[in-house]
Nucleic acid binder design. Structure first.
Length: 285
DNA sequence: GTGTTTGTTATCAA
DNA sequence: CTTGATAACAAACA
């Protein structure tokens, strides 16, 4: 489940591999993964030098001279770069990390001639790659809320956000991409645990101190995960096919029934805002 | 065969 | 308008 830290990890890697390069061939193995016909998609991408790879919420944005290639990995999407050049260290070629690609879940392949290949894999086919004009992209971004790692994510902004949805539950508000963009199920649960707040608390019931604590917890969790290159609960891999290691530092997500790492009480799992919600009944109020 | 998993959108209800 | 619930999308996994 790629959320902000996972997408940011992929974007930083891809920028190194892709910027300045042009795609020489595209194979579309699943038409539903793209927003144009294969011929038009190919025409938009081929021989167009990539100038920038960036992130908008959970979206990956690849800048081409005329248009943007916007990618959402949804739940099981992967973007994995395979270098074609034989890296020789100490007289021996470095062994490629991860499995052989393409595999049965590869949906699109971008060929970068002599340098390498980029594979879009997606078990569940929810992910997508869309060519957008700058105008279309701008319109699309307008639906996204603020990035919690941006400098605009101030305490004042956050308090206004909370005040605008007083009757919502914390879990639902933090998952809403039109309010904040980038948090998903894992980091919402982790942030609420770190802030000692119940996921089902009404937003309007928070004290000033609780508001500040939550505001601090969100970027803290995201940055910590980024340091470990994200959470590979199952499907997520970075752009080099490697797992993220933050799964070893999760406090509540995926730990239902196991002891709370702070107080020792068995962690709970309930259903809230349509999602499995993990939390500690002793530590969160 | 059944239930669970989740990002996002659409639809419906109160 | 707000909020929440549910289905849909698709496929693996227990």
């Amino acid at each position: 489940m790629p959320e902000l830290p996972e997408v940011e990890t992929i974007v930083r890697d891809l920028a190194q591999f892709l910027v300045g390069r042009s795609c020489r061939a595209v194979q579309v193995l699943n038409l539903k993964s793209i927003n144009l016909t294969a011929a038009k998609f190919r025409q938009q991408v081929l021989h167009q030098p990539i100038s920038e790879v960036s992130r908008r919420g959970k979206h990956i944005v690849i800048k081409l001279p005329q248009n943007y290639l916007v990618i959402h990995l949804k739940m099981t999407g992967q973007l994995i770069w395979r270098d074609k050049r034989h890296l020789i260290v100490g007289g021996h070629p470095i062994k490629q990390v991860g499995e052989e690609l393409p595999n049965k879940f590869t949906r699109v392949v971008f060929d970068f001639a002599s340098s390498g290949q980029l594979f879009f894999n997606d078990v569940r086919k929810f992910g997508w790659l869309k060519i957008m004009t700058p105008a279309e992209a701008e319109k699309y971004w307008q639906r996204l809320g603020l990035d919690p790692l941006s400098k605009e994510f101030s305490l004042v902004f956050f308090k206004k956000l909370l005040a605008s949805r007083p009757k919502s539950r914390l879990k639902a508000l933090l998952l809403d991409q039109s309010r904040l963009s980038g948090l998903g199920n894992i980091y919402v649960d982790e942030s609420l645990f770190l802030a000692n707040l119940r996921p089902d608390r009404l937003v309007g019931s928070l004290t000033a101190l609780e508001q500040k604590k939550l505001w601090q917890a969100i970027p803290k969790v995201l940055r910590l995960s980024l340091r470990y290159r994200g959470t590979s609960f199952n499907n997520y891999r970075d752009a080099q096919g490697q797992s993220g290691q933050f799964v070893n530092h999760l406090q509540v997500y995926g730990r239902a029934g196991q002891p709370c790492l702070v107080c020792g009480r068995a962690l709970s799992k309930t259903r809230l805002a349509g999602r499995g919600t993990h939390w500690c009944q002793s530590c969160q109020h």
